[in-house]
Design a protein around this nucleic acid. Sequence first.
DNA 1: ATGACTGCAAAGACTTTGCATCTTT
DNA 2: AAAGATGCAAAGTCTTTGCAGTCAT
Lengths: 137, 137
Amino acid sequence: MDNKRNFSAKREAIYRAISSADTHPSAEWIYEQLKQEIPDLSLGTVYRNLNIFKQNGKIKSLGVFNGHERFDFDTSPHSHFVCECCFSIIDVPGGINLFDKNTCLYVEKECGVKVDSYSVVFYGICRKCRRKQSALR
Amino acid sequence: MDNKRNFSAKREAIYRAISSADTHPSAEWIYEQLKQEIPDLSLGTVYRNLNIFKQNGKIKSLGVFNGHERFDFDTSPHSHFVCECCFSIIDVPGGINLFDKNTCLYVEKECGVKVDSYSVVFYGICRKCRRKQSALR
DNA sequence: ATGACTGCAAAGACTTTGCATCTTT
DNA sequence: AAAGATGCAAAGTCTTTGCAGTCAT
């Protein structure tokens, strides 16, 4: 992630866990994941390091879903889909959903603000949950 | 809000507080607001009624910002701007930021999901906070 | 009376934090 | 040795909930 090797083994493990996950994980998820490999890891450390990564810009918060803050190591602009049933989060491929600069300029003018970023989230039902729902009928 | 008049005075006051607010309020904000007018209101009641409104579709949750869930009585599709400094939320006027159905279809095909809705949030610094920042220099 | 609504306070869920200890340089 | 990172548990914050009491029909 960085060349300076200024980090601890646990910190690196936490970052590795996020960046290798395909789940846009929560703190709890990372903790559970690493517990097997690092039994003496504490949840507080996970939270602390996530906040450091966030400040560093190494990860991005996707917001709070179902009470859990979710993170993304991919900080490049892209949209997400959130399943309202199981709260899985998946990347929307391609930049098709991104606004151009004019849209932000429009918001700045209309609202009298300075726009730094934006987020686009689609909500619905994921494939897995749809299957479950159909199976129940 | 509804013709059936099946609601209590406090419930109506809570809905009135949201719908007359220009702040996309939190539960706490509504509680503080109404406390003057209704001294024996409890915060639990505010939470309970907000959840009922949410289920009824009478209000929409904008998500959690700075730890507080924020609500909007305007359930029509529109985007929002969130100030990263004071966490004020303002409506982006006009439908210019809304996607068309094809965008949702694209997401459905690419992700193999069913899209029900989406949200667009712009982040930045609001006018008031910018002024404060300039004044400090 | 019956069902709906509420106050109150306790409980829950997630996150942060203080402090002593342990690591790393 | 100094600075940084962590474990542990307590505290903090926001939200939900159980229960008994209240209100409306």
